[in-house]
Structures are given as structure tokens and as C-alpha cells.
């Protein structure tokens, strides 16, 4: 009877350990190979569409703020990022112009004349496409993997970025190299996690979705 109890205990211990080993990230064996495969996948990707679930974790307050929405991306530089719950907020980036609709308030910004928004545009586009780690002047990347995912951690090098971002983590699915999760860490310890369930690539997305009124 006692032996039976031990075998059940070992079985659960094995389950826990195997789950842990799958989740644990270790240093990537072939970062150059990953970069090459990723560049190829990016070249073939014309559009991306997905819903997203954003979780802002407030470390000191031990609270989480959940928001949800949908995003569309179309090559070269078109992005529609729309929050639908618990409020409505829309950002459209279209070849150098940023359009924001916050409830009834609409604003249009020429990114080329605005350094801060140009930076935001650059980071958003880089995160959605996942190629931000290629800019080694602005970020110091380090590469990791587990059984199902690749992970690239990036530490900002520019002092203005360091003030509000301590690290960006981008998770990729090993099969299709799509971004599955994005984490942005702040110096305070707070972080924002964005999950992209059910991403679809190369679907037909009309240009009207990115029109700036």
C-alpha cells in the first residue's frame, strides 16, 4: 500500500519536472541559424492579423489590468492596433503618419517630424514583426529557446529608452516563427505582457483598414 503511494508521488513529481523542463529557457544553440530562418519567414510574410490580450502587471500593487483588442499588419509599414475592451482606442500607422482615435477625440501625427512618435512607431513595428533584435545599435539582444519557443531578450542601449524600458522580451513559435508573446519590462519592476492567440498570416487585408481619415 505504501509502495503504491510512493509511485503516485513519483508520477506527479515526474509530471511537474517534465513541465518545468519544457518551460525553462536555455541559451539558444544556433542564434545565427535562427536569424537566417527568421529573415526568410519575414520576407514571405505580407500580412498578419490577430487578436491580442494585454496584461499590465503592477508589481507593488499586486494587481493586473487586462485589456483586449485586435491588430492588423500589412507590408511595408501599415499597422492597425485597436483596443476593444474595456474601452475603445485605435492607433493606425501608415507610412509615416500616426492616427489616434481616443473615444471621440481624433489626432493625426506626422511621425517624420516627431522624434518621440518615430521611436514609438519603430518599436511597435519592430515588435509586431519581431525584427527589433536586428538593431544592435539600440538594443543588446540575447537568445534563448525551450522545446516549443524561441525567446529574444533585448536590453535598450539608448539612455532615453533606458529611462522607461529595462527589457523587451519577444517569444516566437518554433514552427512558424510568429510572435506569440511580447513582454515589456519597466525599471520599476512593472511589466506589460501581450499574447497573440490565433495569429493568421498572408490573409487578404484591404488597404482601407489602414486609411487615415
Amino acid at each position: 500500500m505504501k509502495r503504491k503511494h510512493y509511485s503516485i508521488l513519483f508520477f506527479f513529481l515526474f509530471l511537474v519536472l517534465s513541465a518545468f523542463s519544457q518551460g525553462q529557457f536555455t541559451e539558444m544553440k544556433d542564434p545565427a541559424g535562427f536569424k537566417q530562418k527568421f529573415a526568410e519567414a519575414t520576407r514571405k510574410t505580407q500580412t498578419i492579423e490577430a487578436s491580442f490580450i494585454q496584461e499590465k502587471s503592477l508589481s507593488v500593487l499586486s494587481e493586473k489590468i487586462i485589456t483586449k483588442g485586435r491588430f492588423l499588419f500589412k507590408k511595408e509599414k501599415k499597422l492597425r492596433w485597436e483596443y476593444t475592451e474595456p474601452f475603445h482606442y485605435l492607433i493606425v500607422l501608415n507610412n509615416g503618419t500616426m492616427f489616434i482615435q481616443d473615444e471621440d477625440k481624433k489626432s493625426k501625427i506626422d511621425i517624420r517630424n516627431n522624434k518621440m512618435f518615430a521611436e514609438i512607431n519603430y518599436i511597435i513595428m519592430g515588435c509586431v514583426q519581431g525584427n527589433l533584435f536586428n538593431d544592435e545599435k539600440k538594443f543588446l539582444p540575447s537568445f534563448f529557446e525551450n522545446r516549443g519557443s524561441f525567446l529574444v531578450k533585448m536590453k535598450p542601449l539608448a539612455s532615453n529608452l533606458k529611462e522607461y524600458l529595462s527589457e523587451i522580451r519577444i517569444f516566437f513559435d518554433k514552427n512558424d516563427l510568429l510572435v506569440t508573446r511580447l513582454e515589456m519590462y519597466e525599471p520599476s519592476g512593472d511589466y506589460t505582457r501581450i499574447d497573440f492567440p490565433g495569429e493568421k498570416i498572408n490573409t487578404s487585408i484591404p488597404d482601407e483598414k489602414f486609411l487615415v481619415p
Binding site: Q54, K56, L58, L61, I65, T67, Y83, Y89, I91, I124, Y164, L165, M184, E186, S188, D190, Y191, T192
Partner: peptide
């Protein structure tokens, strides 16, 4: 606490 929609404080 005041943060933007993307979560940055």
C-alpha cells in the same frame, strides 16, 4: 498610477 494604453507608466 497613470500609464498609456500599451502599458508604459
Amino acid at each position: 498610477l497613470f500609464s498609456n494604453e500599451l502599458g508604459m507608466n
